[in-house]
Amino acid sequence: MESSTWTWGQALTVFAVGFSGVFICLLILQIGVNLYSFCSRLIVSHLEKKKIKNS
């Protein structure tokens, strides 16, 4: 984007895309962390059960 000339339309686009983008990105990360935590806890409990069974 040209640095010397700009329009308010461009500024609004930067604001809208940027701010909503940060929210969407961190929302997706939040969903990812929730899913990942759920799966890791499942794996950990499965491994623990297996360990108890074997012993």
Partner: peptide
């Protein structure tokens, strides 16, 4: 994590403030 996103509000408010004071987009 969403609170970390909301706390970027100042970044964008200031972006407009700087434009009003004569700075370019970058």
């Amino acid at each position: 994590l969403l609170l970390g996103a909301a706390a970027q509000l100042g970044v964008y408010i200031t972006f407009f403030g700087a434009l009003l004071l004569g700075f370019n987009l970058q």
